[in-house]
Write a protein that binds this DNA or RNA. Structure first.
Lengths: 189, 189
DNA sequence: CCATGATAGTCATGAAAATGACTAGTCAGG
DNA sequence: CCTGACTAGTCATTTTCATGACTATCATGG
């Protein structure tokens, strides 16, 4: 029951098509949740059945028709009651951490490769988020935007995403440095 | 196929009983992964069937017997090949982010409550991780430990956990401040 | 003596998420 | 003219996770 609310929350600030939503959730641009297109479509269908979103067909020329969705009052009430109860704490769950946990027992070179790849990905995502933030706040300074801007929700979640990816990158780089250092030390024995 | 490797990695630095493992994964003390006891037991059973871990019965007085597990050579090889392929990037996936995404459309007071709760949890977890780190490095300074200490894997993953929770706390506090500020502004209209 | 809580697990069920395969039209490049 | 990429989805299957309920024994506190 979590994707449900994520989809509702994503639809709050403007109508979107299933395809747009799906893409956002797939790339993680909807930086607060991740899901595959199939999941998103399935969830939209269920949400519409339950009357939490309403779709309207938009006929297009030169490309397939699409359906734009918006949140209904019932949907908003649903979200409201979702916010009323405590969210269960989140955990990091990352294959890369498992790999690092095994450092010392597995090939260090391979590990460093993984960490380098990940650092690059993290840097890219951080850049993307930073750009998104700039777009969202437009002309305003961050302070002004946070005080008076519309749609602060997405802005704030995007900030979390940015900090997370920066944390990832820093950690990766630190681990790489530590592993390199240890490898040299051992070579010097 | 991820819990599998997480369990293997957790067993690398010493024999553990199913119960100990399960507890570690439940509390997230195995800070790099989270799973319920039932999952851990089930995975241990499968790992033993596949010959990746070996259990030995330890007869105890005054309490139920337990089984201590260790990783076999086949298990280590399995982990090694797991490390050889790129880990898929991780995403944050957090109910709280969904709730914040909806800020402006839902009750701000409730949101601030959620954020306050979460900030407290994050602070607690960060403290726990910091303590764990101190225990692991013992007398050494961090630098010395990272250079020469045994079991750096768990130390490094714990550091990621610590940074993550600190990031959580800072973000929560920042969002609270922003929401309060906006509420005051609106009240002043 | 009774209730708790810790140790040490097992079983069954259901919800959520991931994966792979498929349709169908448009547009740009070689 | 063919290929690949983009728009806009759907269907089916499997794997993984989460949940609640259940069995035992021992130790502790009141």
């Amino acid at each position: 029951m979590a994707l449900r609310h994520a989809v509702l929350a994503a639809l709050l600030d403007g109508e979107l098509s299933g395809y747009e939503l799906a893409k956002a959730f797939d790339l993680g641009v909807a930086n607060f949740w991740h899901a595959r297109p199939q999941q998103v479509y399935a969830e939209l269908t269920r949400l519409e059945e339950d009357g939490f979103v309403a779709g309207r067909e938009v006929v297009q020329e030169n490309r397939p028709n699409k359906r734009l969705f918006r949140v209904t009052d019932a949907g908003l009430a649903q979200l409201q009651s979702f916010t009323a109860v405590a969210a269960k704490p989140s955990f990091i769950r990352d294959d890369l951490l498992v790999q690092v946990q095994a450092a010392g027992h597995v090939d260090t070179g391979a590990l460093i490769e993984r960490l380098t790849e990940r650092a690059a990905i993290a840097r890219e995502k951080a850049g993307l988020f930073a750009k998104l933030l700039r777009t969202m706040r437009g002309e305003c300074t961050e302070e002004e935007f946070l005080r008076h801007g519309a749609h602060v929700g997405p802005y704030l979640t995007c900030r979390r995403g940015l900090a997370f990816e920066e944390g990832n990158r820093e950690w990766c780089e630190h681990v790489i440095a530590v592993l390199r250092d240890r490898a040299e030390n051992r070579a010097g024995d």
